[in-house]
Computed example of a mutant assay.
Amino acid sequence: MRSMCVVALAHRAHPDWPLILVGNRDEFHARPAAPLHIWDGDSGIVAGRDLQAGGTWLGVHRPSGRTVVVTNVRGAMPDPAKESRGALVYDLLRGEGRFAAPDAQDLPRFNAFNLFAVDAGAARLLTNRPVPLIMPLEPGVHALANEPVDTPCPRAERLRRALEMAGAAGTDPEKLLDTLMAEDDPGLFLRGDIYGTRASTLVLVSADGAVRMIERRYEAGGRPAGATALEFHTG
């Protein structure tokens, strides 16, 4: 499963929203995916779904408010024998399963990835490039893309600054979705006919556990293909 290509996280950095997560998922347009929805069964997950591998790239666990997003890492050849990154996201969201509480020695079992995980007000970065690492994140605005975490990434830095400025100016966070597809910043939004941005997603979590998730979807050439907005409370 490929994954979201650029994402920014505001962790305990906004007066109204202790968690803001915003990013673009880039993928082959032919790869099937289900829109943002509440998953069937008792998983408690609210997310889009990759219908080829069965996992997800970004989601919220409705009972607990756990929030997880993953990106792949550019230049690393995928190994089909490795564990699914989508399974890692799934277990982290539920807080159950083999990978619900991974340590650094577990991370090489997956193809190259970067990941943000937020749980009970604490945020972590997990990555296995350039080396396996699990690192707590201080309150602030952080960003990831498809680069190893020790490599500067202009796309990630532009989105990080946009989220930081939105918080400082008191701007409606939903306007960040427009930033993600800005015509004057082609590095954030890919308009390819075969491979490109498939979805822009915004997650807002308030101090009292109110959650708002918005997903805008796109088809080949960056043409709009629908949107979903969900609201719920954790717990």
Rank of each mutant, 00 (worst) to 15 (best):
P186M: 10
T234I: 14
P173F: 02
A33V: 10
R217Y: 06
A225W: 07
L19K: 02
G121P: 04
D16I: 10
V141L: 08
D119E: 14
R161I: 13
T127V: 00
G209Y: 02
F99P: 05
H37M: 13
A156W: 04
E83V: 11
A34W: 06
D150W: 08
V73K: 06
R216T: 00
V211Q: 03
A47Q: 04
R191L: 00
A112G: 00
G221N: 10
G226C: 06
A10L: 10
T56V: 03
L21Y: 08
V7K: 00
A30I: 12
R66P: 09
A100V: 07
S3T: 14
W39C: 02
W17T: 02
A207Q: 08
L19Q: 04
R124F: 13
A47C: 04
T56P: 06
A156Q: 03
H142R: 05
L230D: 08
H37V: 09
P136G: 01
G170T: 00
E83M: 11
Q52K: 14
P108L: 08
W57T: 02
C153M: 09
I38A: 15
G65Q: 02
R212M: 14
P78V: 03
V141R: 06
R158F: 07
P63A: 13
G209V: 00
P80Y: 11
P173V: 02
A169M: 14
D103P: 09
D40G: 10
M181P: 05
I194T: 14
E27T: 05
F232D: 06
H11K: 01
G140N: 01
V131C: 11
R198S: 07
E147V: 09
H14A: 12
E164H: 14
G86M: 10
L188C: 07
A169H: 14
A169P: 04
A81K: 13
A30E: 15
E138L: 13
A33E: 11
R158A: 14
I45D: 09
A112V: 01
E174I: 11
A220S: 15
R25C: 02
N114K: 05
P130K: 03
P78S: 03
E164M: 13
R12V: 05
M135C: 13
R216W: 05
S43E: 08
E83I: 08
G86R: 08
R161H: 13
R158G: 01
P15I: 00
M181A: 14
